[in-house]
Design a protein around this nucleic acid. Structure first.
Lengths: 256, 256
DNA sequence: TCAATAGTGTCTCTTAGACACTATGAT
DNA sequence: ATCATAGTGTCTAAGAGACACTATTGA
């Protein structure tokens, strides 16, 4: 009677550019229809014997050919609206992965290109930019309103992300922001150790404010339960070298 | 190549017993294999044209034959571990529904019985009880450890919930607890209006403490942004009648 | 008027935020 | 020495928690 819908694993892969002090997101350019040649979040299908979590991790390796020891992946949400795909009904199980470094990318299966897009947040938008391309997480706050406009979205310009990925992106950014103060897993993109300024950079990005608006002294106090001091950095730049911290083990609601 | 797994919608349906001042959860006794005659969370399959959210709402109506105007449903998580079902690989998209009242139940399709189970929290467990039956959310904190023991769980006693439902229950209770202080949607089971004591009852249950350990004065102060005063109750019992409050509109991360 | 229930006021201790000051390194 | 960067100390105001006190009802 009711045909089972197709299932894709969608993975939002984050990293940090230490030179530019910027948050980055991995997008791929699709090789196949639907949305051929559009930029999109990386996706894959689940295999018979693996969990969705495992599929999300496999996706990381396939897209970037990376053999990192361990990286943190967590569930974001599941997207099920009938309008979210133009053709066959498809569910998206969305995950987020926080890479401890920013490796070079090579387009894998199903993609003609794969690039890091840098997060900028001018006037209360989440903007992702790479050269001439830039994509924005939707500013629509209501799920039903979003999918309504998606259904009537004429003449899909290549300037937009495929499917409902600009909605998924919004949900992801909001989630990261909401978790900043009690479980800032996004800081895992800083690798093992980081300076307070680097952490403040990431907080500022997702709170859509400037780094200077976060007082270093207060920031340190407020997160003394989350970070631990491990040493002092040796910088080659003028100024006093910063101390480096590591993220404490965070108790998670749903541990792996 | 890879066969698409089956998909079920699992719904955790909560209500509040005003007489006993207790939180209740809906469980059904399964009519069919697998886990025939076991108690379980209510489940359904998704239809071709509806979103998972809509399916979760339909499930509420089917299970309890209720035509309530509107009740709040939100996504909990998606459970995908290969071991979670004994036979065909099945994903569970889990939702939570907060009913504004506690209607009588009639077992619907796929169930031979449907009952409210009362939440009790002795010594840091989440216990759900109805007469001679009682079920406990797992106390295992790690997902991988849970599914490992599930695979080797011999001689499934009818004292246990079907499938991985004791794990889903744990994730649900933890989530509700974590959201108490900033988005206590669980209070929607109190209906339109409620007394502070009723709210404290629910908080105490999920925090696994006694009501008296939550000071009324402080509780009121701490949640003045979340509740609004609407009037005074007219009780027939001795003692000063309590004032009644309503839950303010909460901004949600992913609005409907 | 008393028991039972519930609401209010207030004191203290902790913490968040603003901001001035000190420390360290490169040139 | 001075600039650039970063870490520390401190004052104040807001908030959390403990707890005593007042208020309103039924019997």
């Amino acid at each position: 009677m009711s045909m089972s819908p197709a299932i894709t694993i969608t993975n939002l892969i984050w990293s940090f550019d230490r030179d530019l002090q910027c948050v980055n997101l991995l997008l791929v350019r699709r090789a196949n229809a639907p949305f051929e040649d559009f930029w999109a979040l990386p996706e894959t299908t689940m295999r018979e014997t693996e969990s969705a979590d495992a599929a999300a991790l496999r996706l990381v390796r396939e897209k970037i050919g990376l053999k990192l020891a361990g990286f943190h992946t967590e569930q974001l949400a599941t997207f099920t609206h009938p309008n979210r795909t133009p053709d066959q009904r498809t569910l998206s199980l969305a995950y987020m992965t926080f890479l401890p470094e920013m490796p070079p990318l090579t387009a894998g299966y199903g993609a003609v290109d794969a690039r890091w897009f840098t997060l900028h947040t001018p006037d209360h938008q989440y903007d992702f930019e790479n050269g001439k391309f830039h994509f924005t997480a939707t500013t629509i706050n209501s799920q039903s309103a979003y999918y309504q406009q998606l259904a009537t979205r004429k003449a899909k310009p290549k300037l937009a992300l495929a499917f409902d990925h600009d909605w998924i992106l919004k949900v992801a950014c909001d989630r990261i922001r909401n978790k900043l103060d009690y479980q800032p897993n996004i800081l895992l993109i800083l690798g093992d150790t980081f300076t307070l300024k680097e952490a403040r950079h990431i907080f500022a990005d997702f709170q859509q404010i400037s780094v200077d608006e976060i007082d270093n002294s207060n920031f340190k106090k407020n997160h003394r339960n989350v970070f631990s001091l491990v040493g002092t950095s040796s910088s080659k730049r003028p100024g006093r070298p910063a101390k480096v911290y590591r993220l404490n083990d965070l108790q998670t609601e749903q541990d792996n």
